[in-house]
């Protein structure tokens, strides 16, 4: 990846964050922490890694994304709108009665969402089935599965992980958003995950740990061709990443703040965006 490409992805990540925060501001509350922490990942996936057609969202050969942490839907909606799957204005309908953008991902409501999730853990097995189905149908698609470090408390995740490696579903990439916090507090206090990389290796994966905000490292990990084993990427992350004031708020799983506060978050990302844009490559 050259410096210009890297800069473009960082700009896209900032644009996703701004659209996400505008979206949440329009409703006044929402799952901000875990949405912010996957914005760099989404920028890399939708900005450079994945094959998809916004004008043909159900194209069978597309690459797919399953955010098993379904509450990160708002980040996906912002990304999809920026990529032209639906109008940007629609983001303002988040969680309004009758909306196509519900709190948790719903493939039957939102154009571009590939899997319905929300009951934690369930996206994992569905992603395995989707990837296995693509493989059996001879499609070139890859499926990118995003799992939370809190979510991984769910036993179903480990059933799905075991199956992925055992049956060599290597067109599925597991990405754990290790943002260190779950709803009730730090993951280290609620139910520690211990060494996630070692766990995935023990489950038969080729596992790597990468910084969750390093677009180049994410790109390298996401485009690695799996050999014998499926790939698991542990994203070393911060819940609320990219907005210091949110990062510094301990209970940032879902936040309700006033419009001025949302504006201050947006201003901070806009300032970052300006700095990135001015960088000489």
């Amino acid at each position: 990846m050259n410096n210009q490409e890297k800069k473009d992805l960082r700009i896209f990540a900032a644009q996703i964050r701004i659209a996400l925060l505008e979206e949440l501001k329009a409703r006044g509350f929402g799952h901000v922490g875990g949405s912010l922490s996957i914005c760099d990942l989404l920028a890399v996936l939708y900005g450079k890694v994945m094959n998809y057609k916004p004008e043909d969202p159900k194209w069978a050969d597309r690459d797919k994304v399953v955010s098993s942490k379904g509450h990160a839907g708002p980040a996906l909606y912002a990304t999809l709108a920026l990529k032209g799957f639906f109008p940007m204005d629609e983001l303002k309908t988040l969680n309004r009665p009758g909306t196509n953008l519900p709190s948790h991902c719903d493939k039957n409501k939102t154009i571009g969402i590939d899997c319905t999730t929300g009951s934690l853990g369930q996206g994992t097995s569905q992603a395995v089935g989707m990837a296995l189905g693509d493989k059996l149908k001879g499609r070139p698609s890859r499926t990118f599965l995003i799992v939370g470090d809190g979510e991984i408390d769910e036993g179903q995740c480990w059933e799905a992980a075991m199956f992925t490696a055992a049956k060599k579903v290597n067109n599925l990439v597991w990405i754990v958003d290790d943002n260190k916090r779950q709803l009730d507090g730090p993951t280290a206090e609620i139910l520690p995950t211990f060494d996630l990389r070692a766990k995935f290796e023990a489950f038969g994966f080729d596992a790597v740990r990468v910084p969750g905000n390093d677009v180049e490292a994410l790109y390298e990990a996401l485009t690695k061709t799996p050999e014998d084993k499926p790939i698991a990427i542990i994203m070393d992350n911060v819940k609320g990443s990219g907005v210091k004031a949110v990062e510094d708020t301990p209970a940032n799983h879902s936040m309700t703040v006033n419009a001025e506060t949302w504006d201050s978050y947006i201003a901070a990302v806009k300032a970052d965006l300006e700095t990135i844009e001015k960088e000489v490559v």
């Binding site: 569905q126 296995l132 199956f163």
Partner: peptide, 17 residues
């Protein structure tokens, strides 16, 4: 692993099976 089996079946349904 029945929960996983059902989830995989649902993913396979989404893939056209």
């Amino acid at each position: 692993a029945e929960a996983n089996m059902v989830g995989i079946a649902c993913g396979l349904s989404a893939a056209g099976f």
